[in-house]
Design a protein around this nucleic acid. Structure first.
Length: 475
DNA sequence: TGAAATGTTGGGGCG
DNA sequence: ACGCCCCAACATTTC
């Protein structure tokens, strides 16, 4: 082929990019394109933190392309309308893109295919975001897995593919004419207000690769123990990059394999294995989403759609604002609100608290996370919430209820994380910081809110709520 | 990738 | 010396 488009979506990088390297292999000229869809603005499912991260990643992609002599063409509108027009304008014979797995994205891609097909333009969708797609790992019976452990065993039996290469410089004659229109990216001023500048995770492909290197040189070897401690820098911090594709999964796996080979002790190798499992969880939930799309509408196990959740708006507001009176919950929510990032252990704690202490529907939490999180991703977020609520695939059984005090004491033993995010509790000693109501000295001296509910009262209510459904299913 | 309730054991205080 | 009680420490069961 003479000339094709590479359509960037959640793959904002120039190395280890399957569709991009396929396009350059099969065509003489590849024109990089990004489309600012209407959904590319803040709304119920997209908060300013993630939008800012995406825009910065996009800007960085444009710079990386420009360094190699490529010009990113940006257009606004609906992709099924924009792409055929752009192809006609550029004389492009095909559009290359990396496959997406969310139901709404697949429906959109179908419309794009129809529109391009009608215009006589090819549409090539390639596997890139995952190692194994939804139909590539199945049970012996040929069905999708709904339990993680056997899924991960099957995953690990298969070979790990090598990363794709880096985009090369085109010959100068290949550059698209400067006359081709490209829209400016939205900035601070027009869409995001003050938020854009304060994103806490450095965006862009270079930042992602640097973080990968840092993580694989040290923290990965302590991951098994440290990943549960929110006060410690023990996690990869790569999830925002995986979310918008500023790093490729094969690149991470290659680095992890190297790190495991360099490990000195069995414990270090085990830590590498624990991190690998987290990457497999990501693919597990992506295949769950594709094979069971009803999880976006309700519980994976439909009987749990009958649960009688609470509709207490004040409780939801207190949870969202980090004003529940439970220090580890409030520290977590304030951190989320301020940075758009939340440690996984804290996600479990606040999700359990919303669903099993406040008895509020997990979908309210799912939506709030989606709006706040920089790494907010439908598959992982939905899977995580259904896991915590006990309604999902391979979920925590409904009677597994975290105690917010003991979770705090176990995973933030010095109260370091709490002090960082809840200044009212700064002066409390470590032995009461997770239960300030028991400290007679601090009562009346600090302005921290009292508990909005008592865990020991809510736990039996939660068991009763689930018990009612269990009874109605098996009369 | 639990926590609470319940059961069991054994040491020590004490009459 | 002995039985009794308390309770920590640990194990098992239950939610």
């Amino acid at each position: 082929m003479k000339r094709v488009i590479h359509w960037f979506r959640r793959d904002l990088r120039i190395t280890d990019n399957t569709a991009l390297s396929e396009a350059t292999r099969r065509a003489e000229q590849v024109i990089p394109v990004f489309i600012l869809e209407d959904a590319f603005r803040t709304g119920p499912d997209m908060g300013a933190a993630r939008l800012a991260f995406l825009l910065q990643s996009l800007e960085s992609l444009r710079e990386n392309l420009a360094e190699l002599g490529h010009r990113l063409i940006v257009r606004r509108g609906k992709s099924p309308e924009v792409l055929p027009r752009l192809c006609a304008e550029l004389g492009a014979e095909a559009v290359f893109a990396n496959k997406r797995y969310e139901p709404y994205a697949e429906a959109r891609d179908q419309r794009v295919f129809n529109a391009l097909n009608a215009a006589g333009v090819g549409f090539e969708l390639l596997k890139d975001a995952v190692v194994w797609e939804e139909q590539e790992i199945l049970t012996q019976a040929g069905k999708p897995f709904t339990v993680y452990t056997p899924y991960s065993k099957a995953w690990k039996l298969k070979p790990i593919p090598a990363p794709r290469g880096k985009l090369r410089k085109p010959s100068t004659t290949q550059l698209p004419a400067a006359s081709i229109r490209s829209e400016p990216l939205p900035t601070d001023a027009d869409e995001l207000g003050h938020v854009l500048k304060q994103a806490s995770t450095p965006a862009g492909e270079r930042a992602a690769l640097e973080r990968l290197g840092t993580f694989m040189r040290g923290p990965v070897y302590e991951y098994g123990a440290n990943r549960n401690l929110p006060a410690v820098d023990g996690t990869s911090l790569l999830s925002p990059h995986l979310r918008c594709g500023t790093i490729g999964i094969r690149t991470i796996l290659a680095a992890l394999t190297k790190a495991r080979e360099a490990a000195n002790t069995p414990a270090q190798r085990q830590s590498c294995e624990v991190y690998l499992n987290e990457l497999i969880w990501r693919e597990f939930y992506l295949q769950v989403l594709h094979n069971f799309p009803h999880v976006t509408k309700g519980a994976f196990r439909p009987e749990y759609d009958q649960l009688q959740w609470s509709d207490n708006q004040e409780h939801l507001d207190a949870w969202s604002a980090g004003m529940t009176g439970y220090p580890i919950v409030d520290a977590a929510m304030r951190c989320l609100n301020a940075t758009g990032n939340l440690h996984n252990r804290l996600r479990m704690i606040v999700a359990m608290f919303l669903t099993k202490d406040l008895l509020i529907h997990w979908q309210w939490g799912e939506r709030y996370f989606m709006q706040q999180l920089v790494d907010g991703d439908l598959a992982a977020n939905n899977g995580g919430w259904q896991w915590s609520a006990g309604t999902g695939t391979d979920a925590a059984p409904y009677f597994r209820i975290f105690n917010p005090v003991s979770q705090g004491e176990k995973f933030d033993p010095q109260g370091e994380f709490v002090r960082r995010w809840v200044p009212e509790l700064e002066s409390l000693p470590g032995d009461v910081i997770h239960r300030p109501w028991e400290d007679p000295l601090s009562l009346g001296r600090i302005s921290y809110p009292p508990r909005i509910v008592r865990h020991e009262e809510q736990r039996p209510k939660c068991l009763a709520m689930f018990g009612a459904v269990k009874k109605s299913v098996r009369p």
